[in-house]
Design a protein around this nucleic acid. Structure first.
Length: 550
RNA sequence: GGGCCCGUAGCUCAACGGUAGAGCGGGGGACUCUUAAUCCCUAGGUUCAGAGUUCGAAUCUCUGCGGGCUCACCA
């Protein structure tokens, strides 16, 4: 059974599925695996009739710690302040840095068909007082928390340490404060200059009631408090958190021992690696989510993430490989199978479920979606590179009937992906380029029969210049037949002459897209003729001519 | 050092207890018209190694080897 359906089959009663994210910087592709898994779990639950709420938290009370994303003059002032209170660096009408960056991932999620029932913002939750009871409990049980950090993670907190981060009322930083002396109403705190390396406190000392937004819980406690506050029953998390003695273990224990509640069901998921290496936002292309989105439309991106079991690493290396076309092909195979068509090769065990979950709209008519005409990616990549080809017209002709509105949209979407792929990832062999400058050196390998045929074709084309791709195509076959040259050798010769390779796009269109003079000259050059006796025709052409004659 | 994942045909992966499969690539063939399409044929791989459980293991257990990621300050 498909992993999400399996999970869904084991739950009891209504479910609250939750995840949250700190809106601190660029969203890279790998970080989309969690949200897709979250969404698929929610869909699987609802599919079985389990009442399900999907929540997504924005941890915007977390301190700013990404210096690279601040303007230089803002670093000293903003590092360590809650993200919700850092000014938007872009200045495009967002209330804060956090709102700006959160909007980016909310938009990405939306584009992927991930629509939580509710986004909650910690900068709203804290001031509302909803977390005050949890803050109080955490402070009352500070010793339990300390002991637990020591026991689970071997992290030693200083004596008197309290599990609370006060927002300094002088400098507004939350990442730099150290609290002690909980008297049941207030705590003493100090804004320490060198408490953390990435931000410096202002030295303020004081007392404060840590409620209603005046302070925030440390991360692991905040996590556990969210579970209690929202009644979370399922929360997946990445393997960086799920490691033994790591964050999840800590929060699980805090939930049990401090907030007296069973933690939600966990589902640890592996990462996505690009080219065998871990993803990094800062280095290498292909890391940012929007870059991958240029070559993988939403449904294909969903498929990439939901097809493997969550605990399996996904190796995705789009650079110079057929990784991108493969995702499309896999999607099309699944669609074909779902539509009841004969499909080549073996299908995954849960092909129908996987296809359903890959669709953007959870309530889509699967059969209708599956039956849409989807031109193969590699085929489009080819068509897109031939100048002057009416791609939509070709695709319509291949389908046999008019494209529906939805099919046109799919075509447009794929053409955009093709363009992006050819632009930044496609391997050389997927690119076709007309060798305008000179006859490709590969032409030296042409056989005498091919050369003779090329010459004949040049003569025929000069006598009656073909006016269209179809006309060229017909002429190619006619001349080949007259010369008793097999079609394969004839076409092969053409590709070598113009592209320097033995195969290529439909030759008729290719030739029709070029100027007639150039085509005839090139055919003659490849045939071993001097197209302008005594003329200076370039080194490559001259050399090949010599060899052919000799 | 701890944790997780992986190690199956050249490549990417599927089979997760019952005679090892697919796609792509490669090789061979067909094709007067989608020539990077379509169709047919072809891969004989000690399923990393060893031990164990079982009537039977790529599939479960243990050990080892190799590779990858991750955690150990903060969030």
């Amino acid at each position: 059974m498909y992993w999400a359906d399996e999970l869904a089959s084991t739950v009891d009663g209504p479910q609250v599925v939750n995840d949250s994210k700190t809106p601190s910087g660029t969203v890279h592709v790998g970080s989309l695996r969690g949200p897709v898994i979250l969404d698929v779990i929610a869909r699987a639950l609802r599919d079985r009739g389990v009442p399900t709420t999907l929540l997504y938290g924005v941890d915007d009370m977390d301190p700013m710690d990404a210096q690279a994303l601040l303007t230089p003059d803002a670093v000293e002032r903003e590092m360590g302040r809650p993200l919700s209170r850092v000014a938007d660096q872009v200045g495009d009408c967002h209330a804060s840095y956090a709102r700006h960056h959160a909007q980016i991932f909310i938009d990405i999620f939306d584009g992927l068909g991930i629509r939580p029932d509710r986004y909650y913002w910690m900068s709203d939750i804290y001031p509302s007082g909803a977390l005050d009871p949890f803050i109080r409990t955490a402070l009352d049980r500070a010793e339990v928390v300390r002991d637990l950090y020591r026991r689970i993670s071997r992290v030693e907190r200083p004596a008197g340490w309290l599990p609370i981060s006060v927002v300094c009322h002088t400098c507004g930083k939350v990442g730099t404060t150290l609290a002690r002396d909980w008297d049941g109403a207030t705590v003493a705190f100090e804004c320490v200059p060198d408490y953390v390396t990435w931000a410096s406190g202002c030295g303020t000392i004081g007392r404060i009631a840590p409620f209603g937004g005046a302070a925030k819980l440390p991360w692991n406690l905040e996590w556990a408090a969210q579970w209690s506050l929202f009644g979370v029953t399922i929360e997946p998390c990445g393997k960086d958190l799920a490691t033994a003695g790591g964050s999840r273990d800590r929060s699980d224990a805090l939930a049990r021992e401090v907030f007296d509640r069973e933690p939600p069901r966990n589902l640890a998921y592996e990462f996505l690696n690009i080219g065998g290496r871990k993803m990094s936002t800062s280095k290498g292309r292909g890391a940012a989510a929007h870059e991958i989105a240029e070559v993988l439309p939403p449904e294909q991106l969903r498929l990439l993430f939901l097809r493997p079991r969550p605990n399996q690493v996904i190796e995705f290396d789009p650079d110079g490989t057929d990784a991108v076309p493969r995702v499309f092909d896999e999607f099309d195979r699944l669609a074909g199978a779902a539509a009841g068509r004969e499909v080549k090769g073996e299908l995954p065990a849960d092909a129908d479920r996987i296809f359903r979950y890959a669709l953007l709209d959870p309530s889509a008519d699967v059969a209708a979606e599956a039956s849409r005409y989807r031109p193969a990616f590699a085929h489009l990549a080819l068509l897109a590179q031939i100048p002057g080809v009416d791609v939509a017209g070709r695709v319509t002709a291949e389908k046999g009937t008019e494209l529906s509105v939805e099919e046109r949209r799919i075509l447009e979407e794929r053409l955009a992906a093709v363009a992006g792929w050819l632009d930044s990832y496609a391997p050389e062999r997927a690119r076709i380029e007309i060798r305008r400058d000179a006859l490709p050196a590969e032409a030296a390998a042409l056989g005498e029969d091919q050369r003779a045929w090329l010459g004949a074709l040049a003569r025929a084309a000069e006598e009656t210049p073909p006016a269209s791709g179809d006309a060229w195509q017909a002429l190619i076959f006619a001349v080949a037949e007259a010369a008793a040259l097999p079609a394969g050798r004839a076409f092969g010769a053409l590709y070598v002459a113009f592209l320097g390779r033995t195969n290529g796009p439909r030759a008729g269109w290719l030739l029709a897209s070029l100027e007639a003079d150039f085509v005839v000259d090139r055919l003659r050059a490849a045939a071993g003729w001097r197209d302008r006796p005594g003329g200076n025709d370039g080194a490559a052409g001259g050399r090949d001519t010599t060899e052919a004659v000799g």
